[in-house]
Design a protein around this nucleic acid. Sequence first.
DNA 1: GCCCACTTTCAGATATCTTTGAATATTCCG
DNA 2: CGGAATATTCAAAGATATCTGAAAGTGGGC
Lengths: 164, 164
Amino acid sequence: MDSLEDTDARLRESAEKLALALSQSGMQKTTARVMTALLFSQRQTMTAGDLCDALKISSGAVSGAVNQLIPTGMIERVPAPGSRRDHYRFREHAWATLMGNQNALLAGMCAAAAEGIEIAGPESIAGHRLDEMQDFYGFMQHEMAALIETWRQRREARPGTTSA
Amino acid sequence: MDSLEDTDARLRESAEKLALALSQSGMQKTTARVMTALLFSQRQTMTAGDLCDALKISSGAVSGAVNQLIPTGMIERVPAPGSRRDHYRFREHAWATLMGNQNALLAGMCAAAAEGIEIAGPESIAGHRLDEMQDFYGFMQHEMAALIETWRQRREARPGTTSA
DNA sequence: GCCCACTTTCAGATATCTTTGAATATTCCG
DNA sequence: CGGAATATTCAAAGATATCTGAAAGTGGGC
């Protein structure tokens, strides 16, 4: 069996790999690195200093990343007892939250299609293309929300970690 | 009622707005502009020259964008009868294809979580976090594919444009 | 109320990504 | 097979986004 240090090193490597993939899908690189560092950490929380140290980035970069992550619901600031350092934690159900946020995107696509149809007319060439788009995103918007809810309930019913 | 030129101008404006939104969600700007130009066009197809002209970009940029779009299934090259210019067209069901492609991403998330669990162990702190992640993306991967299939069938059953 | 540990902000430096423009390759037609 | 119309590629320019480092702001504890 590997030593603990080795395990940690391999976890960081794994975290970096995922961060790289996420950054290629549109997420900022540092933001992704901070997120995966918290996700793969063997601790419940990490301080800003921990993150600077682990990722070799400046405190300014950590601050920026953290304040980008918090509004999305991926991580949260946890009150630190007896310390004035902020502790950060990867949130329970963060992934479901993240995907739920995409509903706004889907709605935006719907709206864009509707706008185009209004301009071009529903029976025009562009109108038909946009009609399919509107139909698809309207459907997805509705069904995705339901899907996430289904997952939430399914997981709630399991012997899972109901908040440590 | 608006004149045709005015309609066209407003469509282009709408297209640009959507392109901007898409580029903020990770898509390359020019690629997004080419895509939305084809999406909002009142013609069935556009040539590379048309795109250069409409978007005020160089032929090199069009070439790059188009060759990025084609593999994703969003647009297709259509044989041009009596012309050696390539014509491009927004593909039927492009949005469903696009979303279907994301399945690879979901699978990647699953795999990343599994890798982390393997390293950290399922009962570790990171292990529990990653377990939820794996569960979520595993679920989504399966259900999303089903959802897209449902939409496809639902639309097939409608009096929609079954390929012009 | 003051001090100190920590966080945030911001201008400048850096790194990264994108576009252009022209040379090169391709391919259709006669 | 030759010629001309297009498409593609690629180096260099330009634009953008991002990080750093230091100065300024915040708030808890004594």
